[in-house]
């Protein structure tokens, strides 16, 4: 029980740190976790659930993009490798990748841009051996920001692709 509480505290602390940090520091780099060797605590999230995925990813379920860009950089590639490891461990699980854009663009273009970002993440996961049939995409354009300010830091956090596994 104590173990679970500690994990949750760490996750929320990281989340807060993420909100306050500069774009260059995003996403926060957690200590390297070799997911394949880990057994979740008995009281933790159900193995293979999205809660388990989130706990294992520690922020790496989200990758970030530069303005108007959709390429996968080294940080993104690391995060997607971690996602792929989890997906390989639970081969019956499917996932949806949500693509998002910041508010500083026109609405329809941003829907297309979010779709392009979600597909970049998907294609990278497929290149790591994940069956394309397990991965869906959906773009929300600029309609669902996580950071609410109108500044570079907020926009950097909103230009993202978020992987959500389907329970």
């Amino acid at each position: 029980m104590r173990n679970t509480v500690t994990v949750l505290t760490v996750v929320s602390a990281l989340a807060l740190a993420g909100c306050a940090s500069k774009p260059k520091e995003l996403p926060p780099q957690p200590a390297t976790v070799d997911g394949s060797g880990q057994v979740p605590p008995a009281t933790g999230p159900i193995p293979g659930s999205n809660a388990d995925f989130l706990a294992q990813m520690q922020g790496r379920n989200v990758i970030y993009f530069d303005t108007d860009k959709f390429d996968i950089d080294a940080d993104d590639a690391n995060a997607l490798r971690t996602q792929a490891q989890w997906l390989q461990r639970y081969p019956n699980k499917r996932a949806t990748i949500e693509g998002h854009a910041d508010e500083r663009g026109t609405r329809e273009y941003n829907i297309a841009l979010g779709e392009r970002r979600a597909n970049s993440a998907k294609n990278y996961l497929v290149s790591l051996g994940i069956d394309a049939g397990r991965l869906g995409t959906v773009s929300y354009g600029k309609e669902r920001p996580v950071a609410l300010g109108s500044n570079e830091s907020a926009w950097a956090q909103n230009r993202r692709a978020v992987t959500i596994t389907i329970d």
Binding site: F70, I111, A112, E115, R116
Partner: peptide, 24 residues
């Protein structure tokens, strides 16, 4: 995904945009 719909002036056509594999 399909989006950005528009009517033609005579109402007979609808223009729309569709993303296939991220390409719109």
């Amino acid at each position: 995904p399909t989006f950005a719909p528009r009517w033609s002036p005579d109402g007979k056509w609808i223009l729309y945009s569709m993303a296939v594999g991220g390409n719109t």
